[in-house]
Design a protein around this nucleic acid. Sequence first.
DNA 1: TTGAATACCAAGCGCTTGCTTGGTAGCGTT
DNA 2: AACGCTACCAAGCAAGCGCTTGGTATTCAA
Lengths: 215, 215
Amino acid sequence: MQTNAQVSAQGNGDPSTQQLIASLVAEGVLTDPESPRGRLLHAAARLFEQKGFARTTVREIAAEVGILSGSIFHHFASKEDILCTVMQEVTVYARARMAHAVAAAESPREKLRACIVCELEAIHGLAVPGFSILVVEWRSLSPDSQKKVLRLRDEYEQIWLDTIAGAHCPGDEPALVRRLLVGALSHTYSWFKPRGRGLSLSDLADRVLLIFAPQ
Amino acid sequence: MQTNAQVSAQGNGDPSTQQLIASLVAEGVLTDPESPRGRLLHAAARLFEQKGFARTTVREIAAEVGILSGSIFHHFASKEDILCTVMQEVTVYARARMAHAVAAAESPREKLRACIVCELEAIHGLAVPGFSILVVEWRSLSPDSQKKVLRLRDEYEQIWLDTIAGAHCPGDEPALVRRLLVGALSHTYSWFKPRGRGLSLSDLADRVLLIFAPQ
DNA sequence: TTGAATACCAAGCGCTTGCTTGGTAGCGTT
DNA sequence: AACGCTACCAAGCAAGCGCTTGGTATTCAA
């Protein structure tokens, strides 16, 4: 494992990102983004994020990759299957990315900051395309599909809980802090613009850290 | 104004709640809940909250009040018009309720706590049926409809901002605190159960206050 | 007694939706 | 050359959707 490679916020182009994706594809937990199935998943994620699941049609997803709507069902059992797969792969990738960032940080407080930055980058489309779908479209999933995603989500949340526990936040209730934090961070999606001239993402992370882990 | 009538969390049955509604109806800013239009709005709010806007059909809303689907369009121009009206009336009512609670509290810190409790009660369906729709279904609204609701929403938010400014939260940035707070509180919808045997709503409000306004 | 307004029904139109079916082109393997 | 696999097309079905239209029952004021 390369210790000096802190995951950057510059998107999907840089080498360390591609390396992470490649290793996850090799593990079999991520679909190859170059494959037809992979390209469909990316197109669907983009559309679901942009317009929402219910307002996105399978015809639009198909058109995005240049095939007809019927051909989608060669790769997925149903429209919901697409959403479920997107959510699973997004979760797997986000988890791997955050684990990487936490391992690279040194102090407990820096580790917590790394988590915050990671999730903010994910929410704002700087690092994990489709991440916001996990929050917004949760109810569009059937109970069975929810269980599948939840199993992966638990692994993601465990990193958070361990990190919060290490940082000694007020009240010493990591689960509660995480719950308030995930809400606060998710909601930044609807007001924070990382490319604006005001608050930067790094500034925002500092402000959040100041409130949830003062000292 | 009756100063001793703190708005309770017991739902829609108690006298002070009915009095508040009646006065808003008299002002013309709320539809009479007994009227056909009012009953449709309540049914729609319930269904939108339960199943989401896209997954609720006008036929279901109509059936809920015992009429046929076509008859709905005697009262509303479109399905979206129903959603927009629901959101407007929910906002008006929530604002009135919170203004009342803030006025009844004495210290700045207690006023902030009153806001937190008010919004938690609203989110968890204890006081303002349909409140969660404002958060979850925002994107289901056309830009024009969004503007209409936003104008009312601003009045609601102003109460929050003034109250936060008075309580001197860390960083002294009321707008930022409110933004993190609204996310944290909204998200409690997906994990906090006010009727459970664990944390009570009042306990939760205390914990939130401890983090966002320590002292 | 008339007329307007309100609230609703009965029927169905036009459109979109997710998804199915039967078939084909290209490609690597044997 | 024959096979099988992957990826896709062409056509369309069945169902559900929001919404329209023309008409009726009831109520209440003039």
